[in-house]
Amino acid sequence: MLKVNEYFDDKAKSIAFQSDALPATIGVISPGEYQFSTQQKETMTIVSGVMSVCLPGLETWMTYGAGECFGVAPDSTFRVTVEYDTAYLCTYG
């Protein structure tokens, strides 16, 4: 079953689903800077656009484009910045 998630006054939206291997979401983030929290391990793959990310415990921002991915540890927070609508696929676990 699909579940729609909306965050930050509808500036980030995703659809949750069960992939063939792991639970996942696919979504789009509008321009801005945001802070996300994790409950479990996440692997985020950029589908379209560019996302700058500041991972937990780091001061340095890394930039990821289409086809690139990064991981986030469980029970942590991370910051992202996008300059234009950016699509992503996130798997959990």
Rank of each mutant, 00 (worst) to 15 (best):
P56T: 06
T63G: 05
D75E: 14
G71W: 02
P31N: 11
L89E: 14
Q35I: 09
M44P: 04
E42V: 05
P23R: 05
T77F: 08
F8V: 01
V72I: 12
V28Q: 08
F70R: 01
W61Y: 10
V50E: 15
Y64M: 02
F8W: 04
D9I: 03
F70G: 02
G57F: 01
A87L: 07
F17P: 06
C90M: 09
A73F: 03
D9A: 11
M1E: 15
L55F: 01
W61G: 04
M44I: 12
S19I: 05
L2E: 12
C54N: 11
A16G: 08
D85N: 15
S30K: 14
T77D: 14
A16D: 09
R79D: 11
C69I: 01
F17Y: 01
Y88A: 05
D75R: 12
Y64E: 07
F17L: 11
F78Y: 15
T38D: 00
I26M: 11
F17C: 03
M62G: 04
W61Q: 12
E42T: 03
V47L: 05
F17R: 10
Y84R: 14
A21Y: 10
K41L: 10
G32L: 08
Q35S: 07
V53W: 00
W61C: 03
P31F: 05
I15D: 12
K41E: 13
D85E: 15
Y7H: 15
L58V: 04
Y88N: 04
A66E: 00
P31C: 05
Y7L: 14
A16W: 03
Y88H: 08
Y84P: 04
G32C: 09
L2W: 08
M62D: 12
Q40W: 04
S19N: 11
D20R: 12
V80A: 05
N5K: 14
I26L: 08
T38L: 02
G32A: 08
E59P: 03
M1W: 06
K13G: 00
E83Y: 06
P74Q: 05
N5D: 15
T91D: 06
C69Q: 14
T45E: 06
V50C: 06
Y84D: 15
S30V: 01
G93N: 11
G67Y: 05
E59C: 05
L55E: 06
F36W: 14
T43W: 04
T81I: 05
Y88M: 06
V82W: 07
F78N: 07
T25E: 15
T25A: 13
S37Q: 14
E42Y: 02
L89W: 11
Y34N: 11
S37R: 11
G49C: 00
F78T: 08
S30H: 11
S14T: 12
T43F: 03
K11R: 13
Q39L: 08
E42M: 00
A66P: 00
P74S: 01
G49K: 00
N5I: 08
F8G: 01
L55P: 02
L89K: 12
T45N: 01
G93D: 15
V28F: 09
S37I: 02
A16Y: 02
V4N: 13
P74R: 01
P56F: 04
F78R: 10
A66V: 00
